[in-house]
Design a protein around this nucleic acid. Structure first.
Lengths: 334, 334
DNA sequence: GTCGTCACTGCAACCGGTTGCACTGAAACA
DNA sequence: TGTTTCAGTGCAACCGGTTGCAGTGACGAC
């Protein structure tokens, strides 16, 4: 039904190989023949079948991008950046969502395996072993997680967590709660570690609460526990949790930042929109998308070169959801 | 390098066709043989190559989903819903973003054409002619746009626009501005038409402003014009525009809803979070995702049956961004 | 005039599967 | 015992391209 290379060959009066070369190695075919073939192809509406081509060449011209949750506004800028950058290099990016489910993630990787040249795994929830096992089937670049032996793109969340905690310390907070993310999130552990050491260094107490689902609802559900913890400052694993928390606190009549200061992670759009505007750690998502595509294409196009590790800076954006600690605020000796 | 069906056949001591049948028509092979083949396949780590399979069967088991802008929070719920529903029916969904660019959209459709069984076009920006031309290459379902001869899933934005305008009328607004979306957006025209007739019926004036890019920035840039228009109530093509507008108005010191009431479309998450919480027309995105997949699979699996048209209800969600019109509010005779 | 070179094109095998058809042998039937 | 029937398997062509190799003929060099 669809017009194939043989149809073109027949009507142009040449062999299929000539048609094939017209598209994939034009310099090998006589200019006259070439224009004739192209004319016929145009007329018949011929389009090379990329899947068939991939069968022999092993190259599809596609990249896959797998995220835990498309609905998390953190990802779209990264996706768009990766997509745009890949397009410049003549690749297309296909995106899929795992719903935070490692089983779905594995299945998607398998499905993608033969249909794309390489895979961008963003915040994968799979175990390290599973990732290693799957990596033999297709090249990976992992974003937001450190996996030894693999190319990775990291955002320096430790630095971000440190800045956030120090910011709270400067404001006089001495009891800080950390709303952790999913236990399978590498970033969450990194944040926890850095926050703990920063709190310790500042002589403050850090209560780790969670794991929490990295969603608004996760933040809402954690509100009660935060209040019980007696913390005056909260650092949330991501902005969605922070936003959910602020909404729940609002319901409960707890003033932010009057009674409780809240800091998020990601700097997603709603963080600028919520009231009070959220103090948060901005992530270099756009740079990460670019870097991930670069790393992946390096892997795909010259597998000989080794793996890459990129770490990108984060930065604290101070807005209105943080303020001086209430009541027994210890005036810090300067 | 990767293990193929022939490797399995060789080590299992059977013909490739037997291995093939073990996977695609198990009932045709002797149970003993089957378990042996499966064991060997398992041991060797064999995975059928879906691209190769697609070459002969014409079925990939994949669907493509093309959206204008992944970063618009309107889409992710629709995507997730489509993805989840497709998964139940053993299909995978690959997503791509066109950046609101018709040329990219066309290229993506072509790329997807041979690698998926069908395509979901969400809010396509392509001309009707282009869509018709491309549709011969692959089955489509179009969401948020009416194209004759194609299966479509629509959300009843006309009804939504009517409710929104009537809501403003009830609040005493007599000068209403409509911030239109992109001129290539079918929904935008539908909204405009319905809003105009509702305004007319209510004896109010409707100023159509735009087209505007369907983004926050679009709303910000339109603020000045809205003020110039003298409108007391604004209906925006989508929530992003509404949010951008509210932010800009805030900068300008214009009170919402005190001096200006704002209504959006979509009911995306930030709409519930912004202050004042946004009155908006909620879209049945989850239902639309399901319906679109249903329609597409019908098309793919039984092409004989004709195209489908589904229209889903919208509903106005009244929040805090709308209030009684200021100053010369004409008390309506009841 | 002969030969080598080179640009161009055709041939055919191959990528990794699927599938209609033919073959085999054992069970079922007469 | 002879004939059907049928489950199970192999054979080979095919899906839509790509590519190494060989063949052809024109042309320049000797």
């Amino acid at each position: 039904m669809a017009v194939t290379i043989r149809d073109v060959a027949r009507t142009a009066g040449v062999h299929v190989s000539t048609v094939s070369r017209t598209f994939s190695a034009p310099h090998l075919v006589n200019p006259e023949t070439r224009v004739r073939v192209l004319a016929v192809a145009e007329e018949l509406g011929y389009r090379p079948n990329r899947a068939a081509r991939a069968l022999t060449t092993g190259r599809t011209g596609n990249l896959g991008l797998i995220v835990a949750d498309i609905a998390n506004p953190f990802f779209p800028p990264l996706i768009k950046s990766a997509q745009a950058h890949a397009r410049e290099r003549d690749y297309h990016v296909f995106v899929a969502d795992t719903d935070e489910d490692p089983r779905v993630e594995e299945e998607l990787i398998r499905t993608f395996a033969k249909q794309v040249d390489g895979l961008l795994l963003c915040s994968p929830r799979l175990s390290g072993r599973a990732i290693d096992r799957l990596n033999v089937e297709i090249p990976f670049v992992v974003v937001n997680r450190q996996v030894k032996g693999l190319s990775t793109v990291l955002m320096d969340v430790a630095q971000g967590a440190r800045s956030a905690v120090e910011h709270l310390l400067r404001l006089g907070h001495r009891r800080i709660a950390l709303l952790a993310g999913p236990s399978s999130s590498w970033n969450s552990s990194a944040i926890e570690e850095a926050a703990a050491s920063a709190a310790l260094a500042g002589g403050a107490e850090l209560a780790v609460l969670g794991p929490n689902p990295p969603t608004e609802q996760g933040g809402e559900l954690a509100a009660a526990e935060v209040l019980r913890s007696g913390a005056t400052g909260v650092l949330a694993y991501n902005d969605l949790i922070a936003i959910g928390l602020i909404e729940a606190l609002d319901e409960l009549g707890v003033a932010v930042p009057g009674q409780l200061s809240v800091v998020g992670f990601d700097d997603i759009m709603p963080a600028r929109v919520i009231s009070p505007k959220l103090t948060t750690v901005a992530m270099p998502t756009v740079a990460a998308g670019r870097a991930a595509v670069d790393a992946l294409l390096r892997l795909v196009e010259s597998p000989a070169t080794g793996t890459t590790r990129t770490t990108l800076d984060t930065s604290l954006v101070v807005r209105a959801s943080t303020a001086a600690a209430p009541s027994p605020a210890v005036a810090r000796p300067r």
